[in-house]
Simulated assay, not measured.
Amino acid sequence: MIYTVTFNPSLDYVVQADQLIPGEINRTTSEHIYPGGKGNNVSVILSNLGLKSKALGFKAGFTGDVLEKMLEEFGCETDFIPLKEGNSRINVKINAGTETEINGQGPVITEEAIQALYEKLDKLEEGDVLILAGSIPNTLPEDIYERILERLSGKEIRFVVDATKDLLLKVMKYHPFLIKPNNHELGEMFNVELERKEDIIIYAKKLQALGAQHVLVSMAGDGAILVTKDGKVYETMPPKGKVVNSVGAGDSMVAGFITGYLNTKDMEKAFRLGVAAGSASAFCSWLATRDEIVALLGEPAEVYHI
């Protein structure tokens, strides 16, 4: 089973506008509401590609109920822990030529709720995949990623971590199956600017030396690089298309990669499906459908069983 964890899920209010002028009344040209949060995005794409996952995390108030219902409508299993106070946050994503985001703070997560999450995670078994993605709200311990991986270490669970800087560096000792920094995040971890692909590969291998098994580096319009546990390096440019919305593209890449790997056990196929999924989501207003991903795959989809 695949499990995703989103510590601070949201309802995403995504709007298009011709322009955004501070201090003025701005009119939208289109608007949509979607379930949000990086782990939830991964679950939706997994569902679109035919894989079941269970979305874990916390929910609060009427927005939390709506969020959970919407995820279920997208084919995701959910097992959120209800919080007694507050509401799950609403994030506003505005595309008016440039992308602007206003992210809510979210509800207070109690120690009781944290313990309830640990108890759910304790039920994971050998062969399961656990995907931890995104930032940590200030009401949670800063080392919660470490606490979770330490708690589950030794159970032969594949850990996938998509986080930034210290959050990522501190879990390397638990040998995550896959990590997915972008090139800027990779540079920040080592306080360097990475402009050449050769340098990105060097620093991806440094993360492997710290404990990561496979390192997938996204580079937006410059494509992606995968450095595998056995030392192979794959790189590709993204498919051509117009970027409409970058929110969720990285999460889609993670979901596509995991789908490709679990279906084929082939790293190159997993990499290509990951890139196709990430690009497809970038080219549409929200997360890509199966057909939109397959259209960018560039070869018969049957080899991926999607």
Rank of each mutant, 00 (worst) to 15 (best):
E68F: 01
F257M: 02
I202S: 13
G23H: 07
I25P: 00
G37I: 06
M267K: 14
K265P: 00
L186K: 06
C76F: 08
G241I: 05
K229W: 05
T98M: 09
L167Q: 15
S252Y: 05
L194V: 04
Q16T: 07
K205H: 11
K170N: 15
P22G: 09
P141R: 14
A133D: 06
E185P: 02
N40Y: 03
F74G: 00
F58D: 00
A209I: 01
K173I: 09
Y203G: 01
G154M: 04
E195R: 12
S285R: 14
L297Q: 05
V92H: 09
Q19S: 15
T28N: 10
G39S: 12
Y145E: 09
E299I: 00
D266P: 07
A288P: 02
N48E: 15
G75C: 08
V66Y: 03
H214E: 14
E72I: 12
G86W: 12
S135K: 02
P141D: 14
V108M: 15
I136E: 03
E31P: 01
R290D: 00
A249D: 04
D65W: 00
I157A: 08
D18T: 07
H175Q: 15
F257D: 00
M253Y: 08
G106D: 06
L132R: 09
D79E: 14
E99T: 10
G39I: 12
E31Q: 10
L167A: 14
L67I: 02
G278V: 02
T236Q: 14
I144H: 01
S246E: 11
R89L: 08
G127L: 06
R290I: 01
V192S: 07
M172N: 11
E299S: 06
K206G: 00
P239K: 10
N40R: 02
P137S: 00
V215L: 08
A204I: 07
E142N: 10
L216N: 04
L152R: 05
N245F: 04
P137Q: 02
M219G: 01
L167R: 05
A209R: 04
L168T: 03
A204P: 04
K232R: 14
S10W: 02
D266N: 15
I25K: 11
S88D: 07
A282R: 01
L273C: 14
V294H: 01
K165D: 04
V160Q: 11
R89A: 09
A295Y: 02
A116Q: 12
G64N: 11
V92Y: 12
T264G: 06
H305A: 13
D128A: 06
F58W: 05
G50Y: 11
G23M: 07
L168F: 08
R151D: 07
E72A: 14
R158K: 15
A204L: 10
A209Y: 01
L169C: 04
L216W: 00
E235M: 05
K52E: 14
L216K: 03
G250Q: 06
D291L: 00
F271I: 03
K93T: 10
L56K: 10
L216F: 13
A280V: 06
K54L: 13
L83I: 04
A17Q: 05
V247I: 15
G37S: 10
M219T: 01
Y203D: 03
E195S: 13
E125N: 08
S30Y: 06
T164C: 06
T164W: 03
L186G: 11
L56C: 08
L132D: 09
H305P: 02
L71H: 08
M1L: 11
